Amino acid sequence: MSTDRSRWVIIYPIYMNSKKTLAEGRRLAISQSCENPTASEIGDCCAFLNLAFCIEPEKAYSRDGTGQRGRVRVQLKKVDGSPVNAEIPSRRVLMLKVADLMSKHRSRIKKGEAGASTTNTGGGKSGKGGRKKK
C-alpha cells in the first residue's frame, strides 16, 4: 500500500506555542497550549497516539521570525478517506491531544523536576542569607 505523504496534515510547533500570539501563528488557546514545543516532541506524541508521521527538520513556518525550524506531517486519513484513529478525526483534535500529551513528555518532566529541587538556604526576605546589619 503506497501512501502519499503530501496528503498528510502538517503541524508546526508554533501552532501550539503558548508564547506566541494568534497573529504570530498560534492556533490553540493559551490554556490549551504548551511552552516552546519542538517538532521532535510532537513526533513523540504522534508515535504515542499510534499515528504515522514524519519530521521535516529543514522546514520553517513562514510567519515565524525566530527561525525555529521543523514541522511534522501526520497521517490522519487512510487512502479511502476513513480516519486512521477514530479518536482523532481532525487536525484540531490532533493538536489538542498533542498539546495535552506534551505536558507529560519526558523532556518536560525533567525540566520541571530540576526547577523544583532547588531549596531556599538563606534566611529572610532581604536575601542577605540571614546576616544582620551591625
Rank of each mutant, 00 (worst) to 15 (best):
K59I: 06
N36P: 00
S31W: 06
S117H: 04
I11G: 00
M1I: 05
A60H: 07
A116L: 11
V72Y: 01
T21K: 09
A52Y: 07
C45H: 02
F53D: 00
G67C: 01
T66G: 07
Q32S: 15
P83C: 12
W8C: 07
A52I: 01
A116I: 02
R131M: 02
G25D: 03
V98Q: 03
D80N: 15
A114E: 15
R63S: 13
G25L: 09
F53N: 12
R69D: 00
V9G: 00
R5A: 09
H105C: 06
I55L: 06
E35M: 08
T121S: 09
R92S: 11
K97T: 08
N120S: 13
E35S: 14
K125C: 00
C45R: 07
R73A: 06
V84W: 08
M102A: 14
S126T: 09
G43T: 01
S103H: 14
G130L: 03
V9M: 08
A47E: 11
K125A: 10
G123L: 13
K19G: 10
R27W: 02
P57S: 09
R26Q: 09
S107F: 10
W8T: 05
R73K: 15
R5I: 11
G67S: 04
R131E: 10
A29M: 10
W8D: 10
I109E: 12
A99Y: 03
M16C: 09
K132P: 01
E87M: 10
Q32E: 15
D80L: 04
I30E: 14
E35K: 11
G122H: 02
W8P: 03
L76I: 07
C46G: 01
M95Y: 01
G122S: 08
G130N: 02
R73W: 01
I11V: 15
S107H: 12
E24V: 10
V93N: 00
D100H: 13
M95A: 14
V84N: 06
R5L: 08
D100T: 14
R7C: 11
L96E: 15
K125H: 05
R73D: 00
